[in-house]
Design a protein around this nucleic acid. Structure first.
Lengths: 231, 231
DNA sequence: TCTTTTGATTGATATATGTCATCGGAACAT
DNA sequence: ATGTTCCGATGACATATATCAATCAAAAGA
């Protein structure tokens, strides 16, 4: 029972619902025996796009950004990972490589589980496999949204989307301190750092947002939502 | 054995490898009994974004475009579906809705299989479920590419990507006739119809491409590849 | 303390891309 | 034959966004 709590604590994937809830106690205990932890300092890579996908990673404490690296060295930040969130990757069961990079944005502890452990669980437990399919499909829906937003909305709409994401899904508050730089905010919104700063200033001037350095305070969320919706 | 051929013929998913190869003969025959065909005229919707996801669809003959519909009524064409390709959708095992639309671009026959049939197969056959996960992951990799291309490349790079996709993955030839309109090409490349026409003209002027109305002939594929790569 | 570096900010300017209006031709219906 | 509609094509123009250069402020070393 101790094992169960320990693992569900570590592994439960809040973001996309807990895909571990269908594991038996033995299975959870098995995962727990096989996992190990690694510490990362802020800014360090947890794994690297193009590198071998040997382990599935679960954030235990801290926060990480997951991002695509383009040929021209610009990045697209796909999402932020909080404790208990799981980072798999589409290389699983395909080419066994990472298709995005992950980096700690504050000091972070992550727990590593061998890919083979996952494969065993999926083989043994059908319900778990179905849950994994659902998990992947939810990720897919998120990507469709990102594609629509980043290709069909203007800068203010994209930045509004980023701020709403941070406030609602990451920090769960209208007021938050963030370790993200302006460049990070730009990489989340598909624009240059300068444009990000200018859009934030616009929001400030319109009284929608208060922000200085790392402090953010969304003053008018409805306005932000409208900007996001209209584009 | 007849059944097997019939179904693999209908169902094999060439695009993302055949996920049906791990079904037993009984399972294939079960699928075959449960499927039924529907004909669509060119331009007709096969299913609609937002609508209920009750069946998985497999193109038997003809061709269809799969596309996201934005709030402002503009579209993003995700990919084209040829015979024997499968259209599922991320609504499967999540919200049971379609997250994209599909429409025939020529007269098309599609075969429908109830979602519950799929769920039964996934439940009974672990290997099939693992293959489904691999299939989803490959689709995921494709989306990352689309995201990188459509947000970080210029128009000529995006159109080059579209032409390479058509030539290599859809028509499998440097010369092809297509039912796609200029608007469709634009929707595949995240730009306006006018811009698409202008970029095609550029390619023409540079001797990279010959095209008039629905006829396309890629004269210099290497140049196109380079344009795609550089952006 | 002083220097050095890094990140945030701003302004001027260039460029890519969208918008709008127009026109011609082909397909199609009357 | 004649209008009508739709699609492709083109030019003029507007505007969104990136680029470049220059400060400024704060943090980090030395």
């Amino acid at each position: 029972m101790e094992n169960v709590e320990k693992v569900t604590n570590c592994l439960q994937c809040k973001f996309q619902s807990n895909i571990f809830r269908f594991l038996s106690e033995e299975e959870l205990s098995y995962v727990n025996d096989m996992r190990f932890e690694v510490s990362f300092k802020s800014g360090e890579n947890i794994f690297k796009q193009g590198g071998p996908l040997t382990h599935i990673v679960c954030i235990t404490s801290g926060m990480a950004k997951v991002f695509l690296e383009a040929d021209d060295h610009s990045d697209i930040i796909l999402r932020l990972m909080k404790p208990t969130e799981l980072i798999g990757g589409p290389g699983f069961r395909t080419d066994n490589r990472h298709h995005f990079s992950a980096a700690a944005i504050v000091d972070t502890v992550a727990c590593f589980i061998e890919v083979s452990v996952f494969e065993k669980l999926l083989n043994d437990n059908t319900r778990f496999a179905l849950e994994m399919i659902a998990y992947l499909n939810r990720a897919h829906i998120g990507l469709y949204n990102k594609l629509l937003t980043n290709t069909h909305k203007h800068m203010s709409g994209r930045m509004a989307g980023t701020l709403l994401y941070l406030s609602e899904e990451v920090y769960e508050s209208n007021v938050f301190e963030t370790a993200l730089s302006r460049q990070d905010l730009a990489d989340m919104s598909s624009m240059t750092k300068e444009s990000a700063i200018r859009v934030l200033k616009e929001f400030k001037d319109e009284g929608i947002l208060n922000c200085y350095s790392s402090h953010f305070d969304i003053a008018n969320k409805e306005a932000l939502r409208k900007i996001y919706k209209i584009g």
